[in-house]
Simulated assay, not measured.
Amino acid sequence: MKTYLLLLIAVMFETFGSTCLQASQQFTRFWPTVGVVLGFGAAFWFFTLVLKTLPLGITYALWSGIGIVLITLSGWLIFQQRLDAPALIGIALIIAGIAVINLFSSAGHP
């Protein structure tokens, strides 16, 4: 369970870093650029802690899937970015994939 908490923390930092990346306007704004460096730095540090327990493929699948959902929410809430029906269906399929890994795969459990 601690491993999944570390993974969630890593994804939250990655979401923060990605959100700052958008806000940095191609690294032309100082504080969002600092947020990019700190966010991604912390994200990858926590990611390495998770890799001590979970295999790389499973870890990256979960990292990517959860990250896509959180970044989509960030884009919607902060930057007023909208998604069409096919995009929402695709995100739902990603969530379904995460559920399959966690519910049915023994590879996803430390």
Results as ranks from 00 to 15, higher is better:
Met1Thr: 08
Met1Ala: 10
Lys2Trp: 08
Thr3Gln: 13
Leu8Trp: 01
Ile9Asp: 02
Val11His: 03
Met12Phe: 15
Gly17Met: 07
Ser18Thr: 11
Leu21Asp: 05
Ala23Trp: 09
Gln26Leu: 09
Gln26Ser: 09
Phe27Ala: 13
Thr28Met: 05
Phe30Leu: 15
Trp31Gly: 06
Pro32Cys: 06
Thr33Ala: 08
Val34Lys: 07
Gly35Tyr: 05
Val36Arg: 02
Gly41Trp: 06
Ala42Ile: 07
Ala43Asn: 11
Phe44Arg: 03
Phe44Leu: 10
Leu51Asn: 07
Leu51Cys: 10
Leu54Gly: 10
Pro55Glu: 11
Pro55Gly: 10
Ile58Ser: 13
Thr59His: 13
Thr59Ala: 15
Tyr60Trp: 04
Tyr60Ser: 02
Leu62Lys: 06
Trp63Thr: 00
Ile66Tyr: 06
Ile66Ala: 10
Gly67Asn: 01
Ile71Tyr: 04
Thr72Gly: 15
Thr72Trp: 14
Thr72Asp: 01
Gly75Asp: 06
Phe79Val: 12
Gln81Gly: 03
Asp84Met: 10
Ala85Leu: 15
Ala87Glu: 15
Ala87Val: 09
Ile91Asp: 00
Ile91Glu: 07
Leu93Asn: 03
Leu93Tyr: 03
Ile95Ser: 02
Ala99Asp: 03
Val100Met: 12
Leu103Val: 01
Ser105Met: 09
Ala107Tyr: 12
Ala107Cys: 04
